[in-house]
Design a protein around this nucleic acid. Structure first.
Lengths: 220, 220
DNA sequence: ATTCTAAAGTGGTCAGACCACTATCCTTTA
DNA sequence: TAAAGGATAGTGGTCTGACCACTTTAGAAT
C-alpha cells in the first residue's frame, strides 16, 4: 500500500490503508478482517502500529474486536463515538451557540419537510400527540421533536440532531408547561394542515417560551 | 483509577482514566499532558496500552501529539473525527441522498439567515458577486454557496457543509452555465432585498437546473 | 459416531530496545 | 558578560518478542 511520503504518523497511514483493504476485499458489515499479525506482515509494519490504528477505529465504532476470534467490520449505527466525544468536546460557550443554532436548523427543516409531504403530515402519530397534549399527562419536550426529526427520514440529519441535542442549552429532557402545550398543539395542527410557514412560526414561538430569551432578532 | 472490573478492554478503561486525569488537572486546550511513560507508570499499565488509548483520542481530534515535545489537549474545532468517519460511512448509495438533503438544509438555512438580517444581506460581497454574474468570467458554483454559508456565521454549520460538499452528487466544482447565472442573480437579488421566501425559491430553482431531476416533489 | 483433548489461531498486554526529534542546560567562545 | 555551540535528557514513533486468555478447530480416544 504505497509508502507515499509517510506522514510521520504511520498509524494514520495505516488507518487509510485499512480502508483500502476493506474496500478491496469488499468487506461488508460483520465480515472478518485479516488478523493483526497478517495485517502487520502485509503492510510491513509492526503489530503495535497496526493495533494503534485498529484501536482508533474501534473507539470510533467502525470495527469490533472479539478476543480469540478476530476483528470484524462493525455496525456503525451504534455511534459509540458520540458518547466518547460528548464527554470531551463542546464545553466552551462560543460553540454552544452554534450548536443550538444548528440544532434548530435541522428541526426547522424537519418540520418543513413533513408539512410539505401529504403522506407524512397525516401520519397517525401526530393525532396521538395531539391527544396527549390535551390531557394532563406530562410530556417530555424531546419526545415530540424527536418524532418529527425521525419522521423526516433523513438519517444523517437525525444523527446530527441526536448529537447536538446532548449539548444543547435547551432543556430537552424536561416536561412541557401548560402554555407550552398550547403552542405545541398549534405547531402540530399547522403541520398536519400542510402549512409549513405557520408551523415554523409556531415552532419559533415555542422556542421563545422555553428559552425565555429575546425573540427572533437573530434566528439563524 | 480503580481497576473496577476491567472490561476486558483495558484501553477503553484507559481512555476513561485519561479523561479523569485531564479533569483533575484542570487541563485546558493547549496544555501538555503527562508523557506516555509517566502515564503508563501512573496507571500501572504498559506503554503500548497507553498509546492505544492516546492514538484513539488523537484520531478523534481530542489530543495532539508532537514528537519530541509531548502530548497536548487539542483544539477540537478541527473535528478530525468527522472526516474519518465520513470516509467510512457514506459510501453506500442510501446515505448519499441524505447527504445531499442535509447539505441543502444547511444552504437553505444560511440563505434564510442572511435574508433576514439587514446587516448581512447588504454586505458588499453580494454586489461583487452580482457584477461577476453579469460578466462573462467563469464562476464556480461553490464560490457563491460557500460565501453564503460563511457569512451566515455558524461555524458548526459551515463545518458540516464543507464536509458534505465532498460527498455530494451535485457538481460543485464546475462552472455555472449561462441560464444558471440568471437564476443565481435572482437568488442574490431576493436575498439582498430581504425576501427570504423568494430567495429560497430561487435557490430551489437553481438546484433543479443543476441536477436536472424531478422538481420539488420531495424536498426535505 | 460421539466425546474429549491438544494444538493452532486470535486479540490483549507487557517489557525493552532503538530511532528521530525537541528542549534544555552548560560549556565554550567572542 | 553575552552569545554561540554542543552534549544530554526527555518525548513520541516504531519494532520485536514474549506471554496471557480466549475461541476455534482438528485429531485422538472412547
Amino acid at each position: 500500500m504505497e509508502n507515499s511520503r509517510p506522514s510521520s504518523k504511520r498509524f494514520l497511514d495505516i488507518v487509510s490503508d485499512l480502508r483500502t483493504i476493506i474496500k478491496e476485499e469488499g468487506a461488508v458489515i460483520g465480515d472478518k478482517l485479516p488478523s493483526e499479525r497478517v495485517l502487520a506482515d502485509r503492510l510491513q509494519v509492526g503489530r503495535s502500529t497496526i493495533r494503534e490504528a485498529l484501536r482508533s477505529l474501534e473507539l470510533l465504532g467502525l470495527i469490533e474486536t472479539r478476543r480469540g476470534e478476530g476483528t470484524f467490520l462493525a455496525d456503525y449505527k451504534k455511534h459509540q463515538l458520540v458518547e466518547i466525544l460528548s464527554t470531551f468536546i463542546m464545553q466552551n460557550p462560543q460553540s454552544l451557540k452554534s450548536v443550538d443554532d444548528t440544532r434548530r436548523i435541522h428541526e426547522k427543516a424537519a418540520i418543513e419537510c413533513i408539512s410539505n409531504d401529504p403522506e407524512r403530515r397525516t401520519l397517525p402519530v401526530w393525532g396521538s400527540f395531539l391527544a396527549k397534549l390535551q390531557g394532563t399527562e406530562p410530556i417530555i419536550r424531546e419526545e415530540l421533536l424527536q418524532e418529527i426529526v425521525v419522521v423526516s427520514e433523513n438519517r444523517l440529519s437525525l444523527k446530527i440532531w441526536f448529537l447536538l441535542k446532548q449539548y444543547s442549552r435547551v432543556p430537552y429532557h424536561e416536561t412541557m408547561a401548560e402554555d407550552e402545550k398550547e403552542v405545541a398543539t398549534n405547531l402540530l395542527k399547522e403541520m398536519m394542515n400542510g402549512n409549513s410557514h405557520l408551523a415554523v412560526m409556531r415552532y419559533t414561538e415555542w422556542l421563545d417560551i422555553v428559552i425565555g430569551e429575546r425573540r427572533g432578532e437573530h434566528e439563524c
